[in-house]
Nucleic acid binder design. Structure first.
Lengths: 222, 222
DNA sequence: TCCCTTCTGTTGAAAATTCAACATACATTC
DNA sequence: GAATGTATGTTGAATTTTCAACAGAAGGGA
């Protein structure tokens, strides 16, 4: 576990908590570690939403699949990121999405009630953690908000450009890598993969975009 | 203000706080009341995101408008509902959406810092309110999640049915009213209004749906 | 009641998406 | 290096959406 203290230290959930306090706190929270290999389902849609997860290594996707098998990627959560916290904190019984490892990953699972309900010894950290959790859940809102901004657009081209311009802002550079391959990007933008390829090609030939695999460079705004 | 105590008592932000404590608390939070007539913009996209709002009467819409004037309705917030809390709690500088009164409305504005930062007298309510806020922000996530579920669908018909089935579940009845007229529903589902009308007509003629104005009855699942 | 405005439904043409199928590029393994 | 499998790009047909224009319905006010 010690090897991941660096991640936990950076994790916004533990903001304001000193590293040497972490061990005791983790004991109090009763977290358990879990490893998942690429493409493995960590949680299935419909399972009880009692855990929050912290990505210690790798990355996971929040995905939803409809009866026809159409995959929709709701979000990608990288190292230090949380998942499940919104559903647990909102008091949902069942997860409305599945969590799938996008790469070989290590995840820390914490029973959400241990966080939101004050422990018997009312340790001072809890107040701080709840406050941190508030910020985190609010941040998840922003992630969702961005996704809504994208899917609100009507055409594949607009969806793609909205996503890319957002990445430019987030990563503070016109050149960046994305955590999706083409099919995954299509599933995130909620468009057809081949149609997405067509638009990428067009934008490339127009000199708007450069891309090699999952590294994109935006050359000019449109 | 007294006339709205009933609303505030029901408002989840004040869960666990007794009515007689409310007056003092509101003083501590420094809320101010604001009235807005239908279609009036309460907050403009880009304004500082320092306030959270509680709808005391009427209802508001979170909307976004792109450069071409396409309106997108992100959510409808009714009486007792909150808005702006996610953006304020996430520490955003600027609102990414506008808030528009959907009807003649009365709104209570509270400086978000007064809530998230403990007041000097460290009143016991703050802990409770932060906890309540956590649940609320998480709930907003569910609202967003539903919207994503809808816009993830590819066709107008699927989007409409996803929305309606969600309402059936939420309002716990196959017959319900929605807070949108046709144009607004189209802006919420992110589809063309006339195309939406076509689908409603089809579903009606197929015996799946009944509707009079904004009252819908789902007759059978599809 | 009449007029006017707004809302809703209908239609046909244009544009965009999806779908299926295939070609090519790339990476990995043997 | 060859072979295999996966990922990406390309194409044309079918489907769906969007757009624009109009007609009818509903509601409010004079």
């Amino acid at each position: 576990m010690k090897e991941f203290y660096g991640v936990l230290e950076q994790c916004p959930l533990f903001d304001g908590i000193r590293m040497e306090e972490l061990t005791g706190l983790l004991g109090c929270l009763g977290g358990r570690k879990l490893t998942a290999s690429k493409d493995q389902t960590v949680f299935q849609e419909g399972e009880p939403a009692t855990y929050i997860g912290i990505v210690l290594r790798g990355g996971v996707q929040m995905v939803r699949q409809d009866y026809y098998g159409n995959r929709s990627i709701v979000a990608y959560i990288g190292v230090g990121g949380l998942f499940g916290e919104s559903y647990a904190c909102a008091g949902m019984e069942a997860l409305p999405v599945s969590i799938v490892a996008a790469e070989d990953s290590v995840i820390l699972l914490i029973d959400a009630r241990r966080i939101t309900v004050c422990c018997s010894n009312a340790c001072a950290f809890h107040t701080r953690i709840i406050y941190n959790m508030l910020r985190l859940v609010a941040s998840m809102n922003l992630i969702f908000d961005q996704k809504i901004q994208i899917t609100s657009k009507r055409t594949t081209r607009e969806k793609l450009m909205t996503y890319l311009m957002n990445q430019v802002k987030l990563q503070n550079s016109t050149s960046f890598t994305i955590p999706y391959d083409r099919q995954e990007l299509a599933d995130y933008l909620e468009v057809d993969r081949s149609g997405l390829s067509v638009q990428i090609s067009k934008l490339r030939s127009e000199g708007v975009l450069e891309c090699h695999k999952n590294r994109f460079t935006v050359l000019k705004a449109v």
